[in-house]
Write a protein that binds this DNA or RNA. Structure first.
Lengths: 148, 148
DNA sequence: GTACATAGTCCAAAAAATAAACGCACAGAC
DNA sequence: GTCTGTGCGTTTATTTTTTGGACTATGTAC
């Protein structure tokens, strides 16, 4: 299979994975949401090879998830920042975090605690229905074809 | 880097990715949530190599996301079903679907429409705060270390 | 001139993924 | 009993990806 065929598949999950579905990208984005912007910071935080990091960053820029922002012209230096499109991936990261906290954290408990500043409480993310606000479970969902 | 080191990292996102973070697993799980259970069905639906499929299914069983259920002893036949732990990944799939619908669907619009049967409406999944029920955005969240 | 910093690229070697063939256990037809 | 088909994989040789370390480019500090 050619990995690039995912892009052309008529499935939004497959298309999303064509952007963020390799072994490194979601870790790169985790760093982004934690405030990391610079090449060497990513490298140090991830233990990724420089080659792969450069390639992943280029890929994310190409897909509009990050943008390359020059913050110094002499010497020339650039950093990587999330775009709006990139921030739209936040729910993906939150749901992965939740899964890890719930199912994979040992007896020690979750390594990170998130606080929702508007309400002031520690929280986890829940997948809820945009129409009624209830939490969504697999059995409650029916699937139909969309536009032709 | 050894991919297996993710498992031991004290980050729930990294740990989650050690379970579902390769190129194929989330597509395998998409099929699961659409009702697929048998080896040959997965193979046909994904265009994955048999080698990889066998390895992915074993990996998911080992991590308790799927369980191997024998449905015929003579001849010996097995199928793969989601466990509770596996169903806990539903929000991950829903958020990937949402990202694809929102950011990657062309002019044609979303290929699939989900209906939330309890309320009867077409919907998309939103990441909401478990404490107050509001939608969570990156800027509203502060992060602190959890247990030592 | 020497050392250091940031942001990469290049390339040979190691690791992983693939496709196609093979294995095996059984069923049913003949 | 032997032939053919099916479901679920494993083995093997080949192709692709990833890695790690050196190297480039541009500039500052001493």
């Amino acid at each position: 299979m050619k990995w690039q065929r995912l892009k052309r598949e008529r499935c939004s999950i497959a298309r999303s994975l064509s952007v963020i579905g390799d072994r490194w990208t979601l870790l790169v984005l985790r760093e982004c949401f934690l405030g990391v912007r610079r090449f060497e910071e990513f490298e140090a935080g991830l233990g990724i090879s420089r080659t792969m990091l450069a390639r992943r960053l280029q890929h994310l820029v190409k897909h509009g998830v990050l943008r390359r922002a020059v913050y110094s012209t002499r010497p020339r230096r650039a950093e990587y920042r999330l775009t709006e499109k990139g921030r739209a991936l936040y729910p993906v990261l939150l749901s992965l975090l939740r899964f890890g906290d719930q199912e994979l954290a040992g007896a020690e408990g979750p390594p990170l605690v998130l606080t929702h500043r508007p309400c002031g409480h520690a929280f986890h993310a829940e997948a809820r229905c945009s129409a009624c606000g209830e939490e969504v479970r697999p059995h409650d969902v029916s699937v139909a074809a969309g536009a032709p």
